[in-house]
Simulated assay, not measured.
Amino acid sequence: MSKTASMLAIWISLASNIVLTAIKIAVGFLFKSQVLIADGIHNAGDVIASATAYSAMRVSSKPADEDHPYGHGKAEVLGAFIVAIILGGAAIYMGFHSIHALFEPPGKAHIIAFVAAVISLIWKQILYVYTMRIGRKMNSKGLIATAYDHLADVYASIAASVGIGLALLGDHFELRILAYGDPVAGIIVSFLVLKLAYGMGRESFDVLMERSVSMAHIEQYAALIRSVPEVKRIDRLRAREHGHYILVDARLAVSGALTIQEGHDISRLIKKKIKDAHNDVDEVLVHLNPWYEDKQAAVPNR
């Protein structure tokens, strides 16, 4: 699956968010649906989020250069972090707007508002599955963030559908309390979206702070290194995420009697083994320390 597929997914997400924003805000104001207006504002934030993800993915796809020797992979992570902030802001806005609506006379629910919420629910669920599948396939932080953004919209649309549906039932059976289903649904939505934004923002922040990959991954890299018979000892092994790829840093002890050429060949073999076994590893930095059998120790790391 090529990078083109990722860019297409972002474009589809951006176009969809623009259309849904227009539909929800227009229908929400026409038929006075608080949750649909709030959801429409949330979608307006999604337009910015999708545009941010698209820009970040374009930057991250650039090759390494003199100023960025490790590439531009973190641009996607930064984009995902910005998306998380936008989601959090939208959630707070929705919550405030919905709580305020509880203290106002409830408006009359309309079937068109309910249909708009259901259409949004189905549309966003399809977009979530589509973007998440491509995002995981490409290990794209920006696209995965966009997929979670769609999932937040699924939650919002479910709550909107239920809230407007309850309000319709309240109008039909003259149960005034059910008319508040719309703003109550908006409060529930805001909480779910805020929780999702927190999780996504925390993950992005960890990558930006260069948190190490899991110990399970480190052990897998170590096993591959130990499979090379010339390696006497692993002095240090680290790995960190750099956007949609991983950088591995290994300090290894090999016989001090080896030639420079032999040491070079061992380093290349180790790099090949790790990169062949793990498609998400983009670079393996290998530093060799001399090891002598009589001393049973490597020269201290420098």
Rank of each mutant, 00 (worst) to 15 (best):
Y128T: 15
V129P: 06
V129S: 11
T131C: 09
T131F: 00
R133W: 07
R133D: 03
R133L: 04
R133H: 14
I134M: 03
G135S: 05
G135L: 03
R136C: 04
K137I: 13
S140H: 05
G142S: 15
G142M: 02
L143F: 02
L143M: 08
L143R: 09
I144D: 01
A145M: 04
A145T: 09
A145S: 11
A147F: 03
A147V: 08
A147T: 10
A147R: 05
D149T: 12
D149F: 04
H150A: 14
H150F: 01
H150S: 14
D153G: 14
V154G: 07
V154C: 04
Y155M: 08
A156G: 13
A156S: 15
A160D: 05
S161N: 06
V162P: 05
G163A: 03
I164A: 02
G170I: 07
G170W: 00
D171L: 10
D171E: 14
F173P: 11
F173V: 13
E174F: 07
E174A: 11
L175T: 14
L175I: 15
R176D: 09
R176W: 08
R176P: 12
G181H: 04
G181V: 08
D182N: 08
D182Q: 04
P183L: 02
P183K: 08
V184E: 00
A185E: 01
G186Q: 08
I187Y: 01
I188F: 12
I188D: 03
V189K: 05
V189G: 02
V189W: 00
V189I: 14
S190G: 04
V193E: 00
K195D: 06
L196M: 13
L196G: 05
L196D: 02
A197Y: 00
Y198C: 04
Y198T: 12
G199K: 14
E203Q: 13
S204P: 14
F205G: 11
V207G: 03
L208E: 00
S212L: 06
S214N: 10
A216R: 14
I218N: 01
Q220L: 09
Y221P: 13
Y221T: 13
A223M: 06
A223E: 12
